[in-house]
Design a protein around this nucleic acid. Structure first.
Lengths: 237, 237
DNA sequence: CGAGGTGTTGAGATTTGTCAACCTACGTGG
DNA sequence: CCACGTAGGTTGACAAATCTCAACACCTCG
């Protein structure tokens, strides 16, 4: 049920994604090449950007895994999303001048970067690029809407089901198994994202396992009964 | 704790808001005048736009009150925001091609409209306008973030306190009383927005009233002890 | 091999939801 | 202008979901 940036491969030429993927695109229009900044490697726990950082570039995850989170004045923390290879990161700053969230690597990761100021100029001359930027932003907003729906009108077990199905879909769209994957984030991070307590999330994993819907071993998850999981999104299980 | 479009008055000239406010701005640059569409009046319950509608124009509330809501495939409903005079509406479509939510008038209301396609062209020639559009979008995203925080990491009584303080701030920023106002939405709509059941929201109103923090009579609310209300955002009351 | 972070589980408290009754305000039509 | 119907709002009693606190197991990494 979650939409995420970067599901479908882009058509031809020098799309936003091509530019960010970097390495493989040696010969683009000059304006585009100018945008490209050196890629960056992060260790687990390192921050790609933090709340309030000036918005300078947008990123694509080339390898690894990230979470984004917010911390409010009272120290309340909220994980707002998870990002895997192929996902764009930092779009939240696209509309303004600074980032509203922070992005933290959940494992050793590589990101491609594009300088936003230059990208904006390029997009003025290139309507396709401009449209792509807008489309990515639209996906970001759609993601927000879905998160609000999840947090505002689902009970705990529905939220976890939605989360697992979303992960499954995203792994599948990248050519990995839809039924078996490794969740890089901790239970606590999942719980925060789902608006639950850590223990509640853990219990729900166990309960799904007991019902034979999934198999769990730490971060390794296997979806045994995908329809059963989907059913838990709707009525009472 | 909520950010909303349209807090501060805009500086000089023909800003986005001026254009939308309409009537008072007879002599703008031609490109801008072209964008302006006839205003619209809606009766209570009428929809300004609905989910999936092509994104054609953005709106400003000139008079009245709106809610936006989403309905997902399973019929789950979620109110995503409330909009009063001065607020921009329909920005969620700005990034894409269609609206992801629907907007419904909570009372007889008037809106100003700008044709987006023309507006986009105008913004290409006018960097200030372009920046304004981006700033509005940024506010929209900030609002989403704050809603996620509210839904994901606050308990019921904190959510209601946050809601009331937000309303208070927004009324105040429009020159109305910060301590006494009429909530145009029903308890059910407030509850949906806060991710609660109607009865829970109602009880929380009563409980705040019993504690002498607010006075309530139907939709009329008076904040008696604003600091007390603010205190309920943090620790246990 | 030890330490600390991570994950699981239990028991009980607390919060929130559910169902149901009833009250109130408001608009409509007689 | 009143009467009635209906949507909106409140409250109670109870059920269920979720949280809290606590103990302990596991796993990874240095």
């Amino acid at each position: 049920m979650f939409a995420h940036p970067g599901q479908q491969a882009q058509g031809a030429g020098h799309s936003l994604r091509d530019m960010l993927q970097g390495a493989g695109v040696p010969q683009g229009p000059a304006t585009m090449d100018l945008c490209r900044l050196p890629p960056r490697r992060l260790m687990r726990g390192e921050r790609l950007f933090r709340t309030g950082d000036p918005f300078i570039s947008i990123y694509i995850v080339r390898r690894g895994f990230f979470k984004t989170r917010m911390v409010d004045g009272d120290g309340r923390e909220q994980v707002t999303g998870f990002f895997m290879a192929g996902d764009l990161l930092g779009l939240d700053g696209l509309a303004g001048t600074q980032h509203g969230v922070e992005a933290i690597a959940l494992e050793e990761s590589d990101v491609g970067r594009l300088a936003f100021a230059l990208l904006e100029m390029a997009s003025r001359e290139n309507p396709t690029l401009h449209r792509e930027l807008n489309a990515e932003l639209a996906r970001e907003i759609l993601r927000h809407h879905e998160t609000m729906m999840l947090l505002g009108s689902m009970v705990a077990h529905e939220r976890l089901a939605a989360f697992l199905l979303d992960m499954s879909r995203r792994f599948a769209s990248r050519g990995y198994s839809a039924s078996e994957f490794v969740l890089r984030m901790t239970r606590g991070e999942i719980a925060s994202f789902l608006g639950l307590q850590l223990e509640t999330a853990s219990r729900l994993f166990s309960s799904l396992a007991k019902d034979g819907v999934i198999e769990v071993r730490n971060k390794h998850v296997r979806i045994v009964d995908a329809p059963g999981l989907a059913r838990r999104l709707k009525a009472a299980s």
